[in-house]
Simulated scan of single mutants.
Amino acid sequence: MSRIFPVAAVLLAGSALIVLTKPGAAAERAVLAPAAATTEPVTGHRETATFAGGCFWGVEGVFSHVKGVVSATSGYAGGDASTADYESVSTGTTGHAESVRVVFDPTQVNYADLLRIYFSVVADPTLLNRQGPDRGTQYRSALFPASPAQEKVARAYIAQLSAAHVYARPIVTRIEGNLRFFPAEAHHQDFMARNPTYPYIVMNDRPKVEALKRLFPTSWKA
């Protein structure tokens, strides 16, 4: 599954490849969602949650900059182990979504806080089976709650956002029950941090990280 991005022109200058693009054309507009009215009780210092919101490079890139997040791992969720690989998932027929498993300290950032960040800057929850320039069920907006408490918070928050008409179109984010998560191949991990000037990252993912820093300054970590 190739990463595509809007290109106005491609110029070859000697051995250099210069890509001219429309700034921000492929980045979804950030919307500051309200704080969640329902939260889950804090029962420890480690919790896990899985989010799908388009290309996992950007989802991981955003959550890795959230204070209280211990780790963010790109991978696949929603399908079987036999098809949990990049080439298979790219067909859009495996049931998997490109996802990110987030391990976090709920005494610093709770699940409701992560949901607010997700709905504000990670994904456009009104887009069905697509995000930015990417199309297919593998790019769907979906939540994989790790517990009944998380599911309760997620359903309540989506209802809250819908009632408040935060978005111009209906929310289509799915809440899914298949909790199996399979880490992606090594070269996909920390892709944004390792490839900050990659054109797809510049066009589609860096604006999301910048929006996180702008809209959630107290939650930002370098």
Rank of each mutant, 00 (worst) to 15 (best):
T83W: 14
D113A: 11
Y76K: 12
D80C: 14
S74V: 15
S82A: 15
Y76W: 13
Q160F: 02
S162C: 06
G136I: 00
V121P: 07
N110C: 12
A168R: 10
R155E: 08
S90C: 14
Q138Y: 07
R174L: 10
I175V: 15
V166T: 12
D134S: 04
Q150E: 10
L143A: 05
H96Y: 09
P148C: 02
Q138H: 13
Y76D: 03
V89L: 04
A84E: 13
G132I: 01
Y157K: 01
Y76H: 12
G95N: 06
V166N: 01
Y139L: 03
P145K: 02
Q138R: 05
V70Y: 12
P106K: 02
G95R: 05
H96L: 07
Q160Y: 01
T137F: 09
A149Y: 12
P148L: 03
R130F: 05
L143G: 09
L115G: 01
K152V: 00
D80W: 14
F119M: 08
T73F: 00
A156L: 02
P170G: 03
L127V: 15
E98S: 03
R140W: 12
E87R: 14
Q131L: 03
H165W: 04
G132L: 06
V70K: 14
E87N: 13
V70N: 11
S141V: 09
T107S: 12
T173W: 02
A168Y: 08
D105H: 08
V122E: 07
G92I: 00
V121S: 11
G78P: 08
Q160G: 02
G79W: 11
I158L: 10
L115V: 14
S141C: 13
A154Q: 01
Y76Q: 07
S99V: 05
L161S: 07
A168F: 08
T91V: 14
R135L: 13
V102R: 10
Y76E: 06
A123I: 03
T137W: 11
A142F: 05
Y111F: 12
E98L: 04
D124H: 04
E98P: 00
R101H: 10
T93I: 09
